[in-house]
Computed example of a mutant assay.
Amino acid sequence: MSFLIGENMTGGYGAADILHDCTLAVDLGQIAVIVGPNGAGKSTAMKAVFGMLNLRGGQVRLDGQNITTLSPQDRVAKGMGFVPQTNNIFTSLTVEENLEMGAFIRRDDFSSTMEQVYELFPILREKRRQPAGELSGGQRQQVAVGRALMTKPKVLMLDEPTAGVSPIVMDELFDRIIEVARTGISILMVEQNARQALEIADKGYVLVQGRNRFTDTGQALLADPEVRRSFLGG
């Protein structure tokens, strides 16, 4: 059984369904990547898994427990972290204050977790007293991921973590995501850079119009002629 699974999810906004029997799953310590064309429902699927979208069908289970009716806040308390694509940091606060805000549900000493974040993203230690709004795009994304890690999640969900960053920064972010997964945290992410994302994925999902079109290992999807032709530019 997968550690996190959104199974046969159907739902949308208002009367129209965007997801149609969509299933996403990730095991502990694995990286699962969701790719597909614009408007395929990728971010909607992530929001459904995180409880930001009411499902008309299907369910979400975490570690064997049905969490379909839980609010996003309750899912965070259960061990889920979510980094949205935009508006994912407090620009007027310093880097360190952003990380402290990430520990809002913690009642214990979180200094060791902050130290782990600084080890993962050394540039954040350097700039910890600087307002996060003054950072580059890639550094802001590191703050956003670091803030989510402060809750000590079992699952980290990332919506387009490399959007708008340079290829060099993208590679660095992917390296850090691999490091996070190696600590045993599950990663579920939507990514526009499909080829590069599938390179690091244990499991890949290609969504088209809110439905699962292809599901396989990252390497198998990269090798699939139809996936390459239709979604990876040949």
Rank of each mutant, 00 (worst) to 15 (best):
V117W: 04
N8L: 04
E226A: 12
E126F: 01
V190M: 07
V169N: 07
G39F: 07
I187R: 09
I34G: 10
T162V: 15
L222A: 03
E199D: 14
Q130G: 00
F50V: 06
G36M: 12
A16H: 14
T183A: 05
D171C: 00
G133T: 03
L53M: 13
G29D: 02
V76E: 10
V95A: 06
Q139Y: 04
M150K: 03
Q73H: 15
L55N: 10
I177R: 00
L99G: 08
R182S: 14
A223P: 00
P84M: 04
G6M: 04
N54T: 15
L24A: 08
H20M: 04
G41A: 08
R228G: 07
S112W: 02
R128Y: 00
E191A: 09
L173M: 08
V180G: 07
M46S: 09
L158M: 11
K127P: 01
Q196N: 12
P225R: 01
I105T: 10
G64Q: 09
G64K: 10
T86P: 00
P122Y: 02
N54M: 13
L198R: 10
K42Y: 09
E226D: 12
L149C: 10
D27Q: 14
E100N: 13
S43K: 04
T86D: 13
L62S: 04
E191V: 11
G58E: 03
L28H: 15
P72T: 02
Y205A: 06
G137P: 07
V117H: 11
L93A: 08
I34T: 13
S2Q: 02
R140W: 04
E126D: 13
E126G: 04
K154V: 07
A103Q: 09
G12C: 09
G102Y: 01
